[in-house]
C-alpha cells in the first residue's frame, strides 16, 4: 500500500481500490495532505489523458466523483489551512439551469488546488456582482449550455463593469457551445468548452503556467 499505488488506481479509475487505499493509508497514519496531493497528481494525469483523446467526458465525470469521495474522507483530517492557487466564483448564468459542465469543472478546479465558490444555476448578473463583492475572487467563471446564455454572460460582464469590478477579476466563460466568437461577444477574457482546458486557462490567467 503506497501513495504510488493510489495514484495508479486513481488514474485507471478503479474506484473501489482508490477508496480502500485511502482508508488504509489513513489508518496507517499517512499524512492526509500527502494523500490529497497524490489524488491531485492523479487527477492531473486524468486531465492529460482527456486532452490526448484517450479519456472522454465519462472518464472525467467518474474521476470527479472519485475525487469528491476521497475528499470526503481526507479533508476533515487536514488541520492546517491549505493556501489555494486562487479563488474562482462559479455559476451558471441567468436563464440557464444546466450544471453538468459546471460541476465537472468545479471538481477539476478543486483538484488543481483552486478554491471554488459555486453560486448555483440561473444566476442573475446582480448575484454575480454581489458575490464578487463578498468573496473577492480572482476569477469569475460563467457557465452555460444554451444559446440564451450568451446574452446573459454579456449582461453579467457589463454588470461587473458598471459596478467597477471588471478590472479586479478575470472572467472565463465555459460550456459546450462557447468559442472565440462568443468570448468576443460577451467581453470575457477567456473561454473553454471543456473542464480541463478551463482549469488550464484559469491557471494561465493567474500567471501560474498550466
Amino acid at each position: 500500500m503506497s501513495l504510488e499505488d493510489l495514484v495508479e488506481a486513481f488514474i485507471n479509475l478503479e474506484e473501489e481500490k482508490v477508496l480502500k487505499n485511502v482508508e488504509s493509508l489513513v489508518k496507517m497514519g499517512k499524512n492526509p495532505y500527502e494523500i490529497l496531493e497524490a489524488c491531485r497528481r492523479a487527477a492531473e494525469v486524468v486531465g492529460e489523458r482527456f486532452e490526448r483523446g484517450e479519456y472522454f467526458l465519462s472518464e472525467l465525470v467518474y474521476a470527479g466523483e472519485i475525487f469528491n469521495n476521497v475528499m470526503k474522507i481526507v479533508l476533515p483530517l487536514i488541520k492546517r489551512e491549505i493556501k489555494p492557487l486562487g479563488t474562482i466564483l462559479l455559476g451558471t448564468v441567468q436563464g440557464d439551469v444546466h450544471d453538468i459542465g459546471k460541476n465537472i469543472f468545479k471538481a477539476f478546479a478543486e483538484a488543481a488546488g483552486f478554491k471554488v465558490i459555486d453560486i448555483g444555476v440561473d444566476t442573475p448578473p446582480e448575484k454575480f456582482v454581489e458575490a464578487v463583492k463578498i468573496y473577492k475572487p480572482d476569477i469569475v467563471g460563467m457557465s452555460g449550455l444554451l444559446t440564451i446564455a450568451y446574452d446573459a454572460m454579456k449582461r453579467t460582464v457589463e454588470a461587473l463593469k458598471e459596478a467597477g469590478l471588471r478590472d479586479k477579476v478575470k472572467v472565463i466563460i465555459g460550456g459546450g457551445r462557447v468559442d472565440e466568437n462568443i468570448k468576443r461577444y460577451t467581453g470575457a477574457d477567456e473561454w473553454a468548452d471543456n473542464a480541463i482546458v478551463g482549469v488550464k486557462k484559469c491557471k494561465q490567467m493567474l500567471g501560474l503556467g498550466g
Binding site: T147, Y150, R177, V178, D179, N181, I182, R184, Y185
Partner: peptide, 9 residues
C-alpha cells in the same frame, strides 16, 4: 453553420 459565427461575424 456555426451559430456563434452568425452572432459575431
Amino acid at each position: 453553420i456555426p451559430s456563434s459565427l452568425l452572432l459575431e461575424a
